[in-house]
Nucleic acid binder design. Sequence first.
DNA 1: ATAATTAGTGTTTTTTTTACACTTTGTCAA
DNA 2: TTGACAAAGTGTAAAAAAAACACTAATTAT
Lengths: 229, 229
Amino acid sequence: MPRTYEYPRPALTVDAVVFGLDGGELKVLLIERGLEPFKGQWALPGGFVQEGETLDRAVSRELAEEAGVQGVFMEQLYTFGAVDRDPRERVVSVAYYALVNLADHTTRASTDAVDARWFPAATPPPLAFDHADILQMALDRLRGKVRWQPVGFELLPEKFTLTQLQQLYESVLGTSLDKRNFRKKVLGFDFLVPLDETRRDGPHRPAQLFRFDHGRYTSLQRKGFHFEL
Amino acid sequence: MPRTYEYPRPALTVDAVVFGLDGGELKVLLIERGLEPFKGQWALPGGFVQEGETLDRAVSRELAEEAGVQGVFMEQLYTFGAVDRDPRERVVSVAYYALVNLADHTTRASTDAVDARWFPAATPPPLAFDHADILQMALDRLRGKVRWQPVGFELLPEKFTLTQLQQLYESVLGTSLDKRNFRKKVLGFDFLVPLDETRRDGPHRPAQLFRFDHGRYTSLQRKGFHFEL
DNA sequence: ATAATTAGTGTTTTTTTTACACTTTGTCAA
DNA sequence: TTGACAAAGTGTAAAAAAAACACTAATTAT
């Protein structure tokens, strides 16, 4: 294709902040860099946008390639354009964040000969480039969003207990919530459907399992309902 | 500078959705295109990111050049990367939105030999490229943001009446608000300082003027206060 | 059987939000 | 000068939402 516009063209990359929930703790998926610059340091998964590829597709591809992560919730976060973010030349990066059910992805994390590992999102190792800024912004965004949109469920397995759900909110928001008030509110949501199943897990009373019904949620939403937690 | 990375390089632009408030109505600033493609159609102000220029700076520059708009509130919105957004070649655009006090900018809007005009944000003319999508997203973002962060004040003159403030919220949110409840809440905010001045404006009782104290707001915010309307 | 551990459950108080109508202060015109 | 007009300004009561709070139930391991 001819270069119609004669202007400087910064390289364009995408980076992804992939969050997972391990027990009560929020984690991020990081990749060990095999090449300079920042060789040996940890970084967010990401890479160059290819010819004819939308930004969303670029992120999906990179996540599949570098981390074996596929078909997960993903949303654009922010575009980072500081002139010296990459020590070699100008690289503008469109950052995304993704929420995955860690149980499904923990084993497949390592692919592509690179080392990929989960780290505590709040206390990551030193990161390459401006990835610490990106991570911080993703954390802020997640915290801001989780209360107004039911995205948190993306971090849980399909079937989950109310205690798991509460722990999720507690760890993302960094607060502690009252169990009774939490359950009262959450059980008022029609899109949380109780299953005829329980989770036996240690020497104590088994917990009822629930499922998040996406379809019902969107239909309620169209009727003017709006989620808040 | 050597091209260290050998990858396709889409052209990179910035676009800005500039909102202003005219009477009770929310407006957008549009520019008539002088060149193909979409010659003669209305479009968002914007242009190419220059060598060594951050994204924020690029938007500021374009706004100053194309619309005489300077020193206003501005925030990154989203990055649009559809492959065919520009009919000629791939162009990725980082969109921003800005809030201006329309009274200060209405006259200077036309500069640079291009025609720049304010249009109702809710019912704009047909727009070039995917600018209608960008505008829609900016509207959604503004609506979402205005209740949690005191950004609305950016749309008002420095001194304003509570009725103006209420109208601002009514037109951005598209609802009507109860006067007494609105004033009760708003007057509880320490960062709204009443002036020893009134605004006489037609055959009726003059209204007291107020000012938004940015400094006080940020200091309150640090003490854990959080704005909500 | 009992000790240990997490699941599960309601009520009261406090706070926040909503609904609602008249008086005040100025201008303009008769 | 006075009366009509128009927007500014003001408080209370009812309803809804949020917060505080502690015990019983079900299971497993010893």
